[in-house]
Design a binder for these strands. Structure first.
Lengths: 144, 144
DNA sequence: TTAATTTCGGATAATTATATCCTGTTTATA
DNA sequence: TATAAACAGGATATAATTATCCGAAATTAA
């Protein structure tokens, strides 16, 4: 469904979000420990998330990554996924046809429509905030 | 969503199905031409589909691939997908956690449930027969 | 200003997925 | 039996993804 990079990116954002609640910046080392991901690779993904303006980074001592508290409710899964995997998962043809639409559909176009729309709706309506709260409350887990 | 191999596999099955209606066997060369896929790679995928008993192959002159007419309604997309990509798409965790279930859910476990179940239902209830008919009637297309 | 800390970013390596090539084996028909 | 047609399958090549390494640049605090 998503690339490894995207999975790591989502989990990293959630963990950054939790810390940002407490006004704490966090390093790739701590993040990769918490989400069980390779450290250097995770750092690369964080760079991308910085460029797409989802997380903020601060260099130097006492630096690290954080997310504006005011943004937590506004950032949706869709933003993170699109920023790392592109919009293929939202709009691409299920069978890889270059052109696939109502006028020129692939064999599963109509069948996929519902699934894809469900997925799109879910991604666009799930905020980083609620995911972070799920972890904070102990309902959900970031690893194992 | 699916691997390239799986996309080719699905399209190949559909084209084989169409020909099997007319009692015709078909070669990897003709298949890859029709579905715009690399020939040798497609042949490998067909081998896998033979092993998982979805298509049948006949060696020698006048040989080729075909699918039992009597099976066309019974073979569902789910069979093809599972045979090529495994059941990760049905049961795997959306964020790649090894253990992810009701008792130990990942942050998006509940959110993904509906999407995954939709997808599963669709794959398990879409037959090769109806997809083949869609192409035969000119409603849908296998390439471009 | 210096030292310590931390992200940035380029280079490289390892792994997996995709794709090609070539030879062997089987089979139908002449 | 000979021959041509067609799949089987191993070996190899290429591309994309995932992962690691290291030095440079920035920032804070002593």
């Amino acid at each position: 469904m998503f690339s490894k990079a995207c999975e790591y990116g989502i989990k990293a954002c959630i963990f950054i979000a939790i810390n940002s609640y407490d006004g704490k910046r966090i390093s790739p080392r701590d993040i990769s420990k918490e989400i069980a991901s390779p450290q250097a690779f995770t750092a690369k993904i964080l760079q991308a998330l910085v460029k797409s303006d989802i997380v903020r980074s601060y260099k130097g001592a006492y630096g690290g990554f954080e997310i504006d508290k005011s943004k937590l409710a506004k950032i949706k899964l869709a933003h993170i996924v699109a920023s790392i995997d592109g919009d293929q998962v939202f709009s691409g043809c299920g069978l890889g046809l270059e052109i696939c639409n109502e006028n020129h559909p692939c064999p599963v176009h109509e069948k996929f429509k519902k699934v894809r729309e469900d997925l799109k709706f879910m991604l666009e309506n799930t905020s980083l905030e609620e995911l972070a709260l799920g972890i904070k409350s102990g309902e959900a887990f970031l690893k194992t």
